[in-house]
Design a protein around this nucleic acid. Structure first.
Lengths: 229, 229
DNA sequence: GCAAAAGTGTTCTTGGTACACCCATGG
DNA sequence: CCATGGGTGTACCAAGAACACTTTTGC
């Protein structure tokens, strides 16, 4: 408000990309190639560029560092982290985004990627560079909450999926077992959550399961609440 | 990640301060004294200072511009706004905070305040400087949602309040009437939402109402959902 | 025909909604 | 005694939770 020059800060965009893979919740991490925290795992991210919007920057970094298409998967702003000493290079504020991806074969190593890989959230949480463990913790909590009130769970699945696949997403992200019968009724009775494709999938053993596709609904009304732990 | 200088941006903290006053939802606005947008209403806010955390900056600005005690009222990070052209002065990213205040006498004009005042949300929404109308819209939606799942409604009330006061908060923020009987049972049966003080308040006319104080509960379980309009 | 997973139906209980009456005070 | 808002009780209904059996496939 006064006419003196105001503090200028570096602004990064960091991504917490979550997926369900091999039966556990995993996050995309990269191994840092430069100081600070060289050799440590961190969330993918990078500096904002001139003329670029925040979401735009998040999608770009995702593509550059991991080869994932930022436009194709769910991407939402999570929170902004700006503790004065969070980055030893100087004053850097980070806008964190939460991304949800299906179980993709392997993140393709992009031009800027040193060693992007999926890692179990349980394993890396607490071991990340900067304040990225805080960000990851907040991201997981946001994802858990989103499953209650939105149809976001389908973003963890591929184009087509069974009700059992969807239920496993809930069980793995929430870490609690869910009654298959009640779950099935719930998702099939919620208008626009999932749409039957008519096709079926043959498991290794057992009865074939009907395949579904994401429906148009965004909100889950009424919500699917996790019971108090 | 490369060694070239990265883009530096100005970083502001803006506040959407909401209260219920004279039976309607109001927001704290200031009239801008400088260009750009001189003379237009805007949300209170200002630039981050060196060595200062984001929340700390929000509390400071709140005190400076309005005389409200940022430490005393509910303050939560809302979202971050960084569209490239949102500020004509240059690249400025804003971290927005949502604050909830009880119906205070009048915001005291602080040292930096030009003309802080309460204004009906309906009136100023769409007429604010920068992208502050977007921020205010998001803030109102966040507050509405918070009333469903948390005990935040008590932050709109003073130290002591009646169940009728609390119900009016819900009715005004949501814009829908609520059944007084069911509401009363709901809030008194939710453990830790409100605590009886034993005192009573005499209205202008009618039976005295019991007074309550905020309880320790943060979450509202089960939630108090607004029925689909 | 056996193992494995999918799919369906019923009961019970909880919580939400709708609704009508009595109570305590000031004027 | 009347107007005004505070406080309570009850019937009904929707939704979640708990629970057992049948179906379809591969082997």
């Amino acid at each position: 408000m006064t006419k003196r020059e105001h503090l200028q800060v570096g602004l990064t965009v960091d991504l917490a990309v979550l997926t369900v893979r091999e039966g556990i919740l995993q996050a995309l991490v990269i191994e840092r190639g430069n100081d600070p925290y060289r050799g440590r795992d961190a969330l993918p991210g990078g500096f904002l560029r001139a003329g670029e919007g925040l979401r735009e920057a998040a999608a770009r970094e995702l593509g550059e560092e991991t080869g994932l298409d930022g436009g194709a998967l769910h991407l939402e702003q999570l929170a902004t982290y700006g503790a004065p000493a969070r980055d030893p290079r100087g004053r850097v504020v980070s806008v964190a985004y939460l991304a949800i991806a299906p179980d993709l074969p392997i993140p393709a190593a992009g031009s800027d990627a040193r060693s992007a890989r999926w890692a179990p959230v349980e394993k890396v949480h607490g071991a990340l560079a900067f304040d990225h463990s805080d960000i990851l913790g907040d991201a997981v909590e946001r994802a858990r909450s989103r499953l209650e009130y939105t149809t976001l769970a389908t973003a963890f699945c591929g184009d087509v999926f069974t009700i059992g696949d969807l239920r496993k997403v809930y069980e793995i992200v929430w870490g609690t077992p869910i009654d298959p019968r009640n779950f099935s009724r719930k998702v099939t009775h919620t208008e626009g959550f999932i749409l039957p494709t008519g096709a079926r999938r043959l498991p290794e053993t057992g009865r074939p399961a009907a395949l579904y596709r994401r429906g148009p609904a965004q909100a889950l009304i009424p919500p699917l609440l996790r019971t108090a732990t």
